[in-house]
Nucleic acid binder design. Structure first.
Lengths: 227, 227
DNA sequence: TCCTCTGTTAACAAATGATTAAAAAGGGGG
DNA sequence: CCCCCTTTTTAATCATTTGTTAACAGAGGA
């Protein structure tokens, strides 16, 4: 689950240097050499961080940055500007366009890494607790969406809650009674057979082609989520 | 509702310079001259940002920073380190301790201001600018106009507020109750069915020919703005 | 006053939930 | 190893909840 860094830079030597170093750090890296293409790629790939040259062919880094910062969908992506001259004015302009940091060439790779780490740290934690993964299952509590192998799955409210509950303690076996208390609620009384039915529905829903069944039945004990 | 900046620095001349400039920028400023006291004050005052000298009497800036970053309650407060020498090693150490940025003395006040602004922007989610876009939707909070694919759309006040609220956190699902609290107001009581009606009106209004519906209903959960 | 906006209501449609019963599977004792 | 009893799965059905839609009446501003 490494972060994805996008490089918008037209000098090939710099790109390869950056790429080499960033990949060594464990980041997924992609890049583009011209502004227009960069913007397109950024919008489709939604990287976790962008390194952007101040000057770019077609569309300047400044323009791209402004464009991104306007759009709610992308304005959370941190941008580090790479600027050639260390001039005061440029630095300020960089921040004005919405850049989150800037680095002047020539830059120290170590320092750049540190700045990248710092920015990523800031943007990550918000989403972490609300999105839970277990093997190839992913559930997003904010958007109420569930994915299996990155394919979206539609679940009814109860099935969603059921899965959400299971995923909190994978591999643990829950009795029907425990499930009723935790998923349905303490004071709601329904037949315990009902659990079976919803288990079945959940199974059907998350069962994408030739994947192992994820829900194990433990005879006379209950069910559990398995890998 | 100006941000509160805390200065931990023992050189009086620097403190007064910083204080003067920051207050001119509209920040609330407080400070301390020794490390131990600084830590205490920070924990009680919970400032929005900290400017910290690398070296401080009693307890060094590094120590304070580490201490803060360990504690969940304070590790979200951005820290800018003020370091005397511009040496590579120090920069890296600064980041290692959890600092979010650093500035070397002598520093440009303008640049410092820019960095402060940038960090505060990150921690305050209310970065609400006046014109916000989400995919092909654009909303202008000043002129109260809404555009879809650059075509203007007319919305009633409530629909406008609804959309405005949704666009702040696209893709996030809000319950009727949340919508009522945030769009209508905490203490206004209307039926929750009313939300449905306004959702429908909003849907109709933003639904320009053959475009995907932008508002998703999540059964028994609420609604969300989707791309 | 007229018009727009708002909130309520009611009828309708769709989705989900629970229950039941029958079939299948599992486990243990003889 | 087979038979019987228990538990689980499955499918079909019915009930209930939830959301959609349209119509209406009142409030408030132009």
């Amino acid at each position: 689950m490494s972060a994805h860094v996008f490089i918008a830079e037209d000098e090939a030597s710099i790109v390869s240097l950056l790429k080499y170093n960033l990949e060594k750090e464990g980041y997924k890296v992609s890049h583009s050499e011209n502004g227009e293409d960069a913007l397109k790629q950024i919008k489709s790939k939604q990287p976790d961080l962008i390194l952007m040259d101040w000057m770019l062919p077609e569309l300047s880094g400044v323009e791209i940055c402004k464009n991104l910062k306007k759009d709610n969908k992308f304005n959370d992506i941190p941008v580090i500007m790479l600027t050639a001259k260390g001039e005061e004015e440029d630095k300020l302009k960089a921040f004005d366009t919405g850049a989150d940091d800037y680095v002047t060439k020539p830059f120290s790779q170590k320092e750049l890494n540190a700045r990248i780490k710092s920015l990523l740290k800031r943007s990550k934690p918000q989403s972490s607790s609300d999105i839970v993964e277990f093997t190839d299952l992913k559930i997003d509590r904010i958007t109420k969406r569930v994915y299996r192998k990155d394919k979206e799955i539609t679940l009814g409210p109860t099935e969603f809650k059921l899965l959400d509950f299971f995923i909190k303690n994978p591999k643990r076996v829950y009795s029907r009674e425990q499930l009723l208390n935790n998923v349905w609620g303490e004071d709601i009384y329904v037949e315990s057979r009902t659990v079976d039915v919803h288990i079945r529905r959940l199974r059907q829903a998350i069962n994408i082609q030739n994947t192992k069944p994820l829900i194990r039945t433990v005879r006379s004990a209950g069910y559990s989520l398995e890998s």
